[in-house]
Structures are given as structure tokens and as C-alpha cells.
């Protein structure tokens, strides 16, 4: 194996790993991403506070949200007005956080 081939292989693996990094916003209107995000939304019990349809105690459907803000809130958690959302970075991958972001945006004001 040549040195050049190894370098290319490493780059390809790295690109594959960070395809949806925090800075690299994927297509959030992709129905597959939204569906995967909905599964995460339920499985990770986002519905505790946001409701199964986003209309829970912390109602997401009334909010105007931006992709990076939603990503950051899910990744690093959120503490505002005395309320607290746990941080998910390290528990969920960046890809999964973007999927959850896609679902949240699909039910928020921005996408309507």
C-alpha cells in the first residue's frame, strides 16, 4: 500500500465520520432525517417536557427556531427561566443531534 493511498483512505474515513459536524448543517428537510429525529425525540423522552407532539409543557410548536440554536441546545443543554434541559453531547452523536434538530424544526414555527 502506498503512503498516498493511506492518506486518501484516512481522509475518506474522517470525512465520513464528520459528515454532519456541528458546523456542517445537513439537509434538515430530508424526511428520512425528520423521521429518525422523531424516533429519537420519543426514545430519549423529549416528550417528558415537550409532549409527544411538541405541544407539552415546553411547547416547541409555538417557537421560531434556528438550526444551530436547536443543535446547541440539544448538545449542551439549556438553562433558561429557571428550567433545565440536560445536555446530550457524548450520549448522542452529532448525526443524531442533527436528526433530532430536523424533527424539532419540522414542528416549530419556522418550517410552517
Amino acid at each position: 500500500m502506498t503512503r498516498g493511498f493511506v492518506m486518501v483512505a484516512v481522509v475518506v474515513i474522517l470525512i465520513g465520520d464528520v459528515a454532519f459536524s456541528e458546523e456542517n448543517i445537513p439537509n434538515l428537510k430530508d424526511p428520512t432525517m425528520i423521521a429518525a429525529g422523531h424516533d429519537l425525540f420519543l426514545g430519549k423522552q423529549c416528550a417528558h417536557c415537550h409532549g409527544a407532539d411538541g405541544r407539552g409543557g415546553i411547547n416547541l410548536t409555538r417557537r421560531v427556531l434556528d438550526p444551530k440554536g436547536v443543535f446547541q441546545s440539544i448538545a449542551d443543554g439549556r438553562e433558561k427561566s429557571g428550567l433545565r434541559m440536560p445536555a446530550w453531547r457524548g450520549v448522542l452523536s452529532d448525526d443524531e443531534i442533527w436528526q433530532a434538530t430536523a424533527y424539532v424544526l419540522s414542528i416549530s414555527q419556522q418550517s410552517k
Binding site: 420519543l42 426514545g43 430519549k44 423522552q45 417528558h48 409527544a52 446530550w88
Partner: peptide, 16 residues
């Protein structure tokens, strides 16, 4: 036990 933010409840929420 590493899924820190998810309750070990066997549910999606604490009930409607």
C-alpha cells in the same frame, strides 16, 4: 446506564 438524560422508565414520557 450511560444514557444519562433518559429515564429508565419503559416509556416515552411520565404520562399525559
Amino acid at each position: 446506564p450511560k444514557d444519562y438524560g433518559t429515564g429508565h422508565t419503559g416509556s416515552n414520557d411520565f404520562g399525559r
